[in-house]
Design a protein around this nucleic acid. Structure first.
Lengths: 116, 116
DNA sequence: CCCTTTCGCAACCTTTGGTTGCGTAAGGCT
DNA sequence: AGCCTTACGCAACCAAAGGTTGCGAAAGGG
């Protein structure tokens, strides 16, 4: 019932800019802070801070390459994050279905009463 | 590919306290800021602010009842939010599977080369 | 060898999640 | 009726997070 998710992962992917960054890294392969910032509505420095956050929770890894620093998604960790998204979604979905079923039951009873 | 989700909904459910609040409202039915704060590690005022946020994006609705104010989840809107969670999860999942498949293909080729 | 590029660091601003404190309206109890 | 309690809303205040600008420094390319 209670989500019991890893809050660090959640808050990492909770930010819209960070989600976009993950999208970009997944679509275009490894990239740098500069290359990502060119496709995002924020500055390189902002992207750099987000990369640091994602790195801290293990969703991405970096490697120095000359004067550039390349970042790539950690697929296993992202898979864990996706699992948590799905878990919360499924939990709420189950609750919603239960509520809807109960509501329909009550409605049916009410209709029965009116019918008699 | 790009998630294109409603950012307002996402950031509303991105906060761990707000997710817990939704959990509590789903599990226990309508509640007040005070009743929720008793089961959360934050003060009533913090809960009240979160309720305002959730109300603004339409995830909950409130009704005055004497000196209390009752909040309940808007099921349709929560269903929309769940759909967006699922959409992002599915998109990333698809990407990850593609990456994994490509990696396996490369690995197979490399092994073939070594075998000859 | 110089010029460009890419980065990291620091200062600063604004928003957001959180707190405390206080005033007020609605209910319960003699 | 009158008091005490309870639930709430508003305001001030604080810390952390997302964002910006402005630097200095190191790696590459003419």
């Amino acid at each position: 019932m209670t989500t019991a998710v890893d809050d660090a992962l959640w808050s990492a992917i909770g930010d819209p800019t960070r989600r976009s960054m993950i999208d970009l890294l997944l679509a275009g392969g490894p990239g740098t802070a500069t290359s990502l910032s060119e496709r995002l509505p924020v500055t390189r420095q902002a992207v750099s801070k987000h990369l640091a956050v994602l790195d801290r929770v293990g969703l991405i890894h970096s490697a120095a390459a000359g004067r550039e620093r390349h970042y790539r998604v950690d697929e296993a960790q992202l898979a864990r994050a996706v699992a948590q998204l799905t878990a919360v979604g499924d939990a709420w979905d189950a609750r919603l279905r239960r509520i809807k079923r109960i509501a329909e039951t009550i409605e049916r009873h009410r209709t029965d009463d009116q019918g008699e």
